[in-house]
Design a protein around this nucleic acid. Structure first.
Ligand code: FES
Ligand code: FES
Lengths: 155, 155
DNA sequence: CACAAACAGGACTAAAACAGTACAGTATCT
DNA sequence: AGATACTGTACTGTTTTAGTCCTGTTTGTG
């Protein structure tokens, strides 16, 4: 299926939520407003902060915010933050390039596939994913997103 | 990682092998020459035949061959034959389109991601993956491919 | 300073997906 | 008839994923 992790799916939901009000938001707050359960949101945000996409502040009034202007963030960045480099085959490790280029006669070819996929994801920005919320009742919005993109946490 | 199944990786190896001599080849023959074990090769070929990419002939002198000219086969076809439609998120089922377009405010956006990925894979053809074998000792070739793309079956 | 808010890191478990194998059945050729 | 070779499906052990929880650290507030 060439599927993305569920966590990445949730992450987009949460990030879109964070995108709406650009202030520093706590994990609990985001969990509340996105409908994704707190432990999961927390896990996602920690990872995103670790990879530098978000910045975090500890202590009272702490929370998460974008580390840079969110306008330029691409889906590549989001996916790679949560799943590591986009690598279609197992032989390609963290470097992003196949480490056996010199010995495997297929290497350059699989690399070409990776590059093609990555480039296509580069062209989709996070803000392109933002739901057109202005036309919807916020509660409906939340309900539908949870139902489809965060189905695990329904009653 | 956005990774493809191991079976799909093997499939490319086996298909490249089949590409070299375009005759009808038996599963056992292909297993022998590609280094992938027979049951696995058999599973892959059966699936590829089921989805129409390959044609099969039973009985003595039977085997598998391409159902159409292999020149035009894209990676999309190979991947979809083995893993089903390319769908980055779980909400997109067999149809290839998100089935909740009318109710999910994100739907069109995820679809855009899918389309972008699929298009980029459309542009990579199977014959582009063919190892440049003419420069290599066939035994080395086989050893390296097995080591990297079919690691399960090493002694 | 004590306490509460909030993030950091990692360990753990249950469930799902995958890889690989096996086997009984059917078609074809000689 | 018998050998070859594909077909379909079921089974099992392993690996990955999803989700939760706990313990520690940082920071603001009274
Ligand atoms: S080892 Fe990386 S493509 Fe073959
Ligand atoms: S339900 Fe398919 S994109 Fe939201």
């Amino acid at each position: 299926m060439l599927k993305v992790n569920k966590l990445t799916d949730y992450a987009v939901v949460v990030l879109c939520d964070l995108l709406r009000g650009q202030a520093l938001r706590s994990a609990a707050d985001l969990a509340q407003s996105s409908g994704v359960p707190l432990p999961t949101v927390s896990k996602i945000l920690k990872q995103l902060a670790r990879t530098g996409l978000l910045q975090s502040a500890r202590g009272v009034n702490g929370g998460y915010g974008f580390a840079k202007s969110p306008d330029g963030i691409s889906m590549t960045e989001v996916i790679e933050a949560l799943e590591g480099p986009i690598a279609v085959t197992g032989c390609i490790e963290d470097s992003g390039d196949c480490e056996h280029l010199h010995e495997c006669p297929m290497s350059g070819h699989w690399n070409a596939v990776n590059v093609a996929v990555r480039r296509s994801l580069d062209e989709v920005r996070l803000i392109d994913m933002l739901p057109e919320a202005r036309f919807m009742d916020p509660e409906d919005l939340s309900r539908v997103i949870v139902a489809r993109h965060a189905p695990a946490m329904q009653a």
